[in-house]
Simulated assay, not measured.
Amino acid sequence: MDIYENIIIGNFLVGLGHQIGRINSNLPFNVNLLQQTPLDKSIGDVLMERADFIKIIEFKRQVNTNKKEQTKHTILSRALNDHKLHDVSREIHWLVSHQNTEKELVVKSAPYLDFNTGLETYSLTELIKDTADELTGKNVPKHKAADYESYIKLLQTLNGRNSDSSGAIILCSSSEGGLNYMPVNSLENLRFSLNQIDHLFKNNHEKKLQQEKKRSYQKERSYGRSL
């Protein structure tokens, strides 16, 4: 029995949505499935972003026998020696490899830089939980947003930036559970859009707090007069 990467990715995305739905967070973020798109080669299979953080995951079956992946790994390792982005890479760029038998699915993962020596058994459930914590802000980013942006640009330079691009969609959910989709004309403008939404949310949240304080104050005054 064999399981292809896109089956693993699909279940990862469904599980990620389920896990995020259990977390009380209002941070805007975006999840992009880039597999088999022009951006797959230059970035990776799955790109996840919020205003101040990026995560890239590449899904492979037998990574140790994949000559293409080994070549890509060598080129990236050499380039990072010049750009001083090793720590950034290990934080946000991961590779997930899987093997399966009739009875179990074994998932192994590591920072992309370390997959030749550091693949560790890591259940899909653990991967989903950790990714959800990163996207919803439970785990604080270790670097600046500009460092993540520099890393993305380096990847695209090394892997060949495709002239084709893609728009993107931001999914917004209301406190009542309603869903709205906001199109973005370019994936490259996505973090800017997320940043705008983040500021808008914070401003609205601050206004609601002020309104609640005002109503509470007025209620207290009204109660005091009635005495």
Rank of each mutant, 00 (worst) to 15 (best):
L27I: 04
R215I: 12
N66M: 06
Q35E: 09
N195W: 10
Y217Q: 11
A132H: 00
H18R: 12
Q196T: 11
I54G: 02
R161E: 13
F59T: 00
T117K: 14
S42P: 07
T136E: 03
Q19Y: 09
N64L: 15
D130Q: 10
Q211W: 08
K202E: 08
K202L: 07
N32P: 01
C172Q: 06
I152A: 01
S123I: 12
V107P: 00
L105W: 11
L209Y: 04
S77T: 09
L209G: 02
F59D: 02
N139Y: 07
S175R: 15
R22L: 15
G118H: 08
S123D: 09
T157K: 15
V46W: 02
S77V: 08
K60V: 05
I8M: 13
K213V: 05
I92T: 04
Q196N: 13
K142W: 07
R78I: 11
S42Q: 15
N24P: 02
F192I: 02
R225S: 10
E206T: 09
Y151W: 08
I43K: 02
H83S: 13
K103Y: 07
Y217F: 09
A132D: 00
M48G: 01
R221G: 01
I197G: 00
L33R: 10
K103V: 03
S77H: 09
T37W: 08
K60Y: 06
G137P: 01
G10H: 10
K72Q: 13
S163F: 12
T101P: 03
Y122A: 03
H83L: 04
D52Q: 02
S173H: 13
K214V: 10
P28C: 02
R78D: 04
C172Y: 01
K213G: 04
E176S: 15
P183E: 10
E120Y: 11
I3Y: 07
H93I: 03
L85R: 00
R161L: 14
R161S: 11
K219H: 07
E69L: 13
L16C: 10
V96C: 09
L209M: 11
D130I: 05
F192P: 00
F201V: 11
H18A: 11
P28K: 01
K72P: 03
Q196C: 10
S216K: 15
K153E: 15
K208C: 01
L194N: 04
L34W: 11
Q156H: 05
L39I: 09
